[in-house]
Simulated assay, not measured.
Amino acid sequence: MSRTRVIGTSSTGIAAAEAALKRRLPASFANWLLANNGRSLGALTVFPVFDARDPRKTWDSIVRNVEGRWAEWLEIFSDSGLDLSALLPFADCGTGDLYCFDYAAVGAAGEPVVVLWSHETGEAPAVADSFADFIVSADRIG
């Protein structure tokens, strides 16, 4: 029996992820997930929110990445003097570096700016004013 592929998610899935992350996702990202959850963005792997309607495609969710791989990176950089607590990774660019929302820096749209966090240096320069701006430039990034 073949399963129909589910694209997008529900507001319930987003709310569950926000509760687990203890952070509200930026509105432009949440809106993108409603229509595109489980899809990549160019060459970037965007972490989905888990959706029980398509557990295979959404298993490696944003919550799983934050609680797993990101927690390990935070431990590695714990003695570096860098404060990474305001970062929330949402996409993997395939090199080990992660695109993150920086909740310590709010852009003109009232959302966290997007930064590219380096797994080598821990530095995270801004790359877009918001997720909405980020997806416009994703063709150049990915």
Rank of each mutant, 00 (worst) to 15 (best):
1 M>Q: 10
2 S>T: 14
6 V>P: 01
7 I>Q: 08
9 T>I: 13
10 S>H: 13
10 S>F: 12
10 S>V: 13
13 G>T: 05
15 A>F: 14
17 A>K: 01
18 E>H: 02
18 E>K: 01
19 A>I: 10
22 K>C: 15
22 K>A: 15
24 R>M: 12
28 S>T: 02
28 S>A: 04
30 A>G: 03
31 N>Y: 06
31 N>H: 08
32 W>C: 01
32 W>R: 00
32 W>M: 01
32 W>K: 00
34 L>Y: 03
34 L>A: 07
35 A>C: 09
37 N>A: 09
37 N>F: 07
37 N>E: 09
38 G>L: 05
41 L>A: 01
42 G>M: 00
43 A>V: 02
44 L>Q: 00
44 L>V: 00
48 P>V: 09
48 P>T: 09
51 D>R: 06
52 A>I: 11
52 A>S: 15
53 R>Y: 12
53 R>L: 15
53 R>K: 14
53 R>V: 13
54 D>M: 10
55 P>S: 15
56 R>C: 14
57 K>H: 15
59 W>G: 09
60 D>P: 09
60 D>L: 14
63 V>E: 12
64 R>T: 14
65 N>I: 06
65 N>D: 11
68 G>P: 00
69 R>H: 03
71 A>W: 12
71 A>V: 13
75 E>H: 14
77 F>H: 10
77 F>Y: 12
78 S>D: 14
81 G>A: 09
82 L>K: 11
82 L>I: 10
83 D>S: 14
88 L>D: 05
90 F>K: 02
92 D>M: 06
92 D>E: 10
92 D>F: 04
93 C>D: 06
93 C>G: 05
94 G>I: 03
94 G>R: 04
95 T>E: 06
96 G>N: 08
98 L>E: 06
102 D>S: 07
105 A>W: 07
106 V>N: 09
106 V>E: 10
107 G>K: 05
109 A>P: 01
109 A>V: 03
111 E>M: 08
111 E>G: 04
113 V>C: 07
113 V>Q: 09
116 L>W: 02
116 L>H: 03
120 E>H: 08
123 E>I: 06
125 P>S: 12
126 A>T: 11
127 V>K: 00
128 A>N: 02
132 A>R: 02
133 D>T: 05
133 D>W: 03
134 F>E: 09
137 S>E: 06
140 R>Y: 05
